[in-house]
């Protein structure tokens, strides 16, 4: 019974961690920063977290990474060259309060949109990459996100680069309505052309990857890798619980669940990710 409660608490903590930013406790005298792990509740020195690429050294909880933290953790130092950095959704739409919201997220994240795209090198292999950032409006995909991703697919196609996309998204962006939905078709079409040309496409599913993003480019990789314990699925848990009116399994819609059901090739711990990606790139060095 106790075990049951522990499990539930753990899940609740994980869920809450989605909506709360990690607490930083400042101890002024020593100038030491601590972060409380939302899973195991232990306080960990910030420098320690940093050393472990934002993974809790106690319980392996993977903290969300910002797009640029991700880039630093994977690609050769200084090799990332960003394209379309300035693209923003300004003026696309007259949805109430949408522009204000965008501006607020832009200030908070220092990003212009929920995805960062460009080229980079991994152990000197050139790749085209897109990295989503869940801090920006839950990483939702509107027209700009869809267009940036489509353009980086097309760039990979033209230059015959392998393509790596790190997903982190709640799905299509509601505020842009049907135009967001259509981005699913647009990105998938671009991927199909890349696919037919023999391009190699790898996706890394990170927390969370749901809705319209999971139902388009996230699930179309030649190789699909997921980070441990990421939330991955199509419909929201609450929506499903409302429909089926029963309790869902604890690990429902986690990486581990999808792996078990056969939708993911490997679950890879963040400390091993760079090497695994390199290995996959080596296998496909000859593909166009």
């Amino acid at each position: 019974m106790n075990q049951h409660f522990d499990k539930r608490r753990e899940r609740l903590n994980l869920f809450q961690a989605l909506f709360t930013k990690p607490k930083t406790i400042k101890i002024t005298e020593k100038e030491l920063d601590f972060v409380v792990c939302p899973k195991c509740n232990k306080a960990i020195e910030s420098s320690e977290i940093k050393k472990h690429i934002s993974v809790c050294p106690q319980c392996d909880y993977h903290f969300p990474l910002t797009a640029f933290q991700r880039i630093d953790s994977i690609f050769d130092n200084g090799s990332f060259y960003e394209v379309y950095a300035k693209a923003t959704s300004t003026g696309l739409n007259n949805f109430p309060d949408y522009l204000n919201k965008l501006t607020r997220y832009q200030k908070e994240t220092s990003l212009n949109e929920a995805v960062v795209v460009g080229t980079a090198r991994l152990n000197d292999i050139k790749v085209a990459v897109a990295i989503m950032d869940s801090r920006f409006m839950m990483g939702s995909m509107g027209q700009i996100v869809g267009e940036k991703i489509t353009r980086i697919i097309e760039l990979a196609h033209r230059r015959k680069y392998p393509l790596i996309i790190f997903t982190a998204s709640g799905g299509a962006r509601m505020q842009e309505g049907i135009m967001s939905l259509m981005q699913m078709a647009k990105t998938s079409a671009a991927l199909e052309r890349f696919n037919q040309a023999g391009g190699f496409y790898l996706t890394v599913l990170t927390h969370p990857t749901t809705g319209g993003v999971s139902a388009s480019f996230a699930m179309l990789g030649d190789i699909i890798i997921a980070e441990p314990q990421a939330l991955i699925g199509f419909a929201g848990r609450r929506v499903i619980e409302k429909t089926v009116k029963e309790q869902l399994p604890d690990n429902f819609q986690t990486s581990e669940f999808l792996y078990e059901k056969g939708f993911i090739d490997q679950i890879v711990h963040r400390k091993d990710l760079r090497n695994k990606l390199y290995q996959c790139l080596l296998f496909h060095k000859e593909s166009k």
């Binding site: 699913m184 078709a185 998938s188 079409a189 999971s214 139902a215 388009s216 480019f217 996230a218 699930m219 179309l220 991955i232 699925g233 199509f234 419909a235 929201g236 929506v239 499903i240 429909t243 089926v244 029963e246 869902l248 429902f252 819609q253 669940f257 059901k261 056969g262 939708f263």
Partner: peptide, 18 residues
Amino acid sequence: PGQMAEERGQAEAIAKNL
């Protein structure tokens, strides 16, 4: 939006059609 639909890969099925 159901448990079985998720287990059998709703997202993947839609993505493949697109």
